[in-house]
Design a protein around this nucleic acid. Structure first.
Lengths: 335, 335
DNA sequence: CGCGAAATTGTTAACGTAAACATCGGTAGA
DNA sequence: TCTACCGATGTTTACGTTAACAATTTCGCG
């Protein structure tokens, strides 16, 4: 900057004014400065800027992985909306969701050039006692039940699961089986809980829960077990990928979808419409989740009061071709 | 920091030494300082650090979206390996891959707190004249043909496509149809080019190329067209998601996979093993791509000479159940 | 017990930027 | 013609940190 000032024959303050587009610089001077900037390839040093302003214009995102569709789409939305507000995104990946790692991430984050943090945490860790966030760090949490302590943005998991169950019961199914996600997952627990209560409200039998790990392969294995049960005519899976595995298992077991068994997924990933058959599923609006995260966090950073509480993004059921009324003649129950 | 120094009764320099774990601080002093840090909730200001050191310990990643499996997995690997080296990742999303946007990203990047940049660009933009990177910025490019000007890391697209074609020809298919990705995509072009030359080398007819946009739905539409051609017994799709759509189209058209038609995908995404049937596909090692990107970039940052050239990550064909010899009796060729 | 070397701690300055204030020149109005 | 004011530009300072050097203390050894 000093070099630019020297070359342009002005003071560094004037260069600063030009760089920030402030008024009060006469046109001829401005152009001299701009020319000098170009000639020297001047680019402002953002570390110095951050130091001066006390802000980084950066949001940190702590997460366990981008592998899941939901995470990567949420992060993308966060990045897009943050960019629109002039904020960059710093990714802070945490290997395993152990407490140590999360704490380590928080510690590192303290040293990081970040004005606030969005926590995409997925598992029951914030519940535990020892996890504390450095005071003075602005935080928004995605997909957790820490709503009593932090602002939380979440998909309305429960309502989505309820819609799925009611749809299947409305088609005439006696009950609905559930293939849940891992027990540590908060989202999985919410979906399973809502499935259970929806069945109970309707006075139906609640079958034993199957569990997978979100992967299509785990869905396949669970699907083979479910397919072996002739009374199983409707399956609600906790995500679309497991539904894909279930579809394969049912197909290989000779049970037609939707004629013999109906399947409903969760997420509405892009591929779901190309499954065999195209999957009826609960649509999650990841982009909206990301949008709200950014807004909530920026509100905090801009000194709005931080309001703990959960901001629920609605879900909706997308009807495709994987559900139908149960077979008119049920297979004879095992004696 | 000054407050900490005052409370601990030492100079700020000693606080700095403790904060950085330098030797030459007597144990009792160190503990006093640490206690003061805790009491005041001191966290070092990384902007000041960056300013002092002239480094940010941050890598920028410019990309067009995390939607594609490949991108998000590459980014995840980049983030993980960068973290292991003490670097954070800043995401710089670019809305549309227009030249203006890319230039804008570069400009913003100049102002960004970043020591180097990994460019995941996907389309033929670096070829064009006007795109220039700010001098002095370290760059590694993924998935491009700018190997003459920048260090490039790429999957060995060509070899993967060759493996797919040879596998199908080896099964006895007369030729192989190809469902390509969008023409703007560099990866799509490389795969299509290798498919074509592999067929030519074998002296086979090169059918007209179908094109999709990577999505399963576009694969479905192209699949319907291919299914209508009775001479089509083998299809190589440029990614797995389009293969999913093709599988659905073939199924709906009454053509069995692999009995009537063989299908090979590209990517080996997690779901591919749960398709109907499980998909034979070319495995891409995204994690390795990310790893090499980070290493190449850090080498540059640490003053190793920057070597333009392309670093190819090998691919391998994963055999599953979607390929088989062509039907013994071919349908009569159209006269 | 005294001297020099080594260990520990303190002081100064600089990284690049921008806010706050100071200065300079010109212009309008009396 | 002089004064007051305004707009353009320059000067000073501070942001929080750490390298380099300076000062002080401690310790070993003759």
């Amino acid at each position: 900057m000093a070099d630019v000032a020297r070359l342009a024959g002005v003071s560094s303050q004037t260069v600063s004014r030009v760089a920030n587009g402030q008024s009060g610089v006469v046109e001829s001077t401005r152009e001299q400065v701009l020319a000098a900037m170009r000639e020297l390839g001047y680019r402002p040093n953002s570390a110095a800027r951050s130091l001066r302003y006390g802000r980084f214009n950066t949001i940190g995102v702590i997460l366990f992985g981008l592998a899941s569709t939901g995470n990567s789409r949420t992060v993308e939305a966060i990045a897009t909306h943050a960019a629109a507000e002039g904020y960059a995104i710093t990714l802070i990946p945490v290997g395993m969701p152990t407490q140590d790692n999360v704490l380590g991430a928080f510690t590192r984050m303290g040293e990081l050039a970040v004005d606030g943090v969005i926590l995409i945490i997925e598992v029951h860790l914030l519940d535990s006692t020892a996890v504390f966030l450095p005071p003075g760090v602005h935080v928004v949490v995605v997909d957790s039940d820490a709503g009593d302590r932090y602002p939380v943005v979440d998909t309305d998991q429960a309502d989505g699961a309820r819609q799925a169950v009611r749809h299947l019961l409305g088609l005439g199914h006696r009950t609905v089986h559930h293939l849940a996600g891992p027990a540590e997952s908060f989202a999985a627990e919410r979906r399973a809980g809502a499935w259970r209560s929806a069945l109970e409200e309707a006075g139906r039998v609640v079958p034993a829960v199957e569990r997978g790990d979100w992967s299509a392969d785990s869905g396949y294995r669970a699907g083979l077990r479910l397919a072996a049960d002739p009374a199983c005519t409707a399956i609600f899976t906790a995500n679309d990928q497991m539904a894909l595995g279930v579809l394969r298992a049912l197909h290989e077991s000779g049970r037609a979808v939707p004629a013999d068994v109906s399947v409903v997924g969760f997420d509405d990933i892009a591929d779901a419409s190309a499954y065999l058959p195209p999957l009826t599923t609960v649509h999650q609006d990841f982009a909206e989740v990301g949008r709200r995260c950014v807004r909530l966090l920026l509100d905090q950073i801009h000194d709005e009061p931080s309001t703990p509480g959960t901001d629920l993004v609605p879900t909706r059921l997308i009807l495709r071709s994987s559900t139908a009324p149960p077979p008119a003649v049920l297979p004879p129950p095992a004696v």
